[in-house]
Design a protein around this nucleic acid. Structure first.
Length: 285
DNA sequence: ATGCTACCCTGGCAGC
DNA sequence: TGCTGCCAGGGTAGCA
């Protein structure tokens, strides 16, 4: 399940291959899954891929259409493609000769100095999104990105201020993309364990919020360095697996002994998601 | 504003 | 062996 570290890994894999490349066409194999006006998909043909970015769990491709397409009246100058991987989405750099994976919904054909290639968008469960729109316009898909802060950019005092006065369980707050964007179930649970905070804890004191801030940064940085967590079927843009899952201390370990104190780990449901925690190491107050 | 539940969807697995 | 049923959860809609 791609969260910030997985999406960051994908973007780091895509950027060198796609930045400066020419998008030849977007081939729609399952058009129902692709959002945005069909005319824009036409206009994207021949566009320069100016950049590949991550914002929260979203991947953004900035596209500059060729001059001819740009000069049409009312035609937007720049286009933007936004991809959210949902639970099972993948973006794979492939050669045309490689066999198509099941549930491939779109193929981006591109060409660069080194030759031609494909970027394939695969999403069996279709929880992901693939949206093309005009940059800066009403339809700009970047507007769909939640307004939370980047957890690796916010400092401890800012995060404490952001969370202060919120009444909900801390786990719910960590999953709220309008506060911090990029944390999902795995890294929220892992961060809370490292900070010694119970997922149901509310109205955390300032020192505990500072500790949580440090834990979030630490977990995300380690996970990015490890190439993300390959649970379910996550892989990077070259099909490579991450290995942070072997360092998970609570996620998916219900009933197993806590690595710190040996107490069996427990699971409760919060915000409709499983929260994994150590009942002894993680305190409500 | 806030917080819940339901829903979208397929693959993997347990149980019979 | 093959079927059924349940579970995983990111994000959003609809409701209290």
């Amino acid at each position: 399940m791609p969260e910030l570290p997985e999406v960051e890994t994908v973007v780091r894999g895509l950027a060198p291959a796609l930045t400066g490349a020419r998008l030849l066409a977007i081939e729609a194999l399952f058009p129902e899954q692709l959002e945005g006006p069909p005319a824009l998909y036409q206009r994207a043909s021949g566009a320069l891929i100016e950049g590949v970015r991550r914002k929260g769990k979203y991947i953004l491709l900035d596209l500059v259409p060729p001059a001819g397409a740009r000069q049409q009246k009312s035609a937007p100058r720049h286009l933007r493609l936004m991809i959210h991987l949902g639970m099972t989405g993948k973006l794979l750099l492939s050669k045309a000769s490689e066999p198509l994976e099941k549930h491939t919904h779109a193929i981006l054909h591109f060409r660069r100095s080194g030759g031609s290639g494909q970027l394939r968008y695969v999403d069996p469960r279709r929880f992901g999104r693939f949206v093309l729109g005009a940059a800066g316009a009403e339809s700009d898909p970047e507007r769909l990105v939640a307004g939370g802060r980047e957890p690796l950019e916010i400092d401890a005092a800012e995060m404490a201020a952001l969370f202060h006065g919120r009444s909900g369980p801390i786990k719910n707050l960590l999953l709220n993309q309008n506060l911090l964007r990029g944390l999902g179930n795995i890294y929220a649970d892992e961060s809370l364990f490292r900070a010694g905070i119970h997922p149901r804890a509310r109205r955390l004191s300032r020192p505990r919020l500072y500790r949580l801030h440090g834990a979030v940064r630490e977990v995300l940085a380690e996970a990015i360095a490890a190439g993300g967590s390959s649970i379910s079927d996550y892989v990077g843009s070259s099909g490579e697996k991450g290995w942070f899952q072997v360092r998970h201390r609570v996620y998916g370990r219900t009933g197993e002994p806590c690595l710190r104190c040996g107490t069996p780990l427990r699971r409760v449901v919060l915000a409709g998601r499983s929260a994994h925690f150590c009942p002894r190491c993680q305190k409500q107050k």
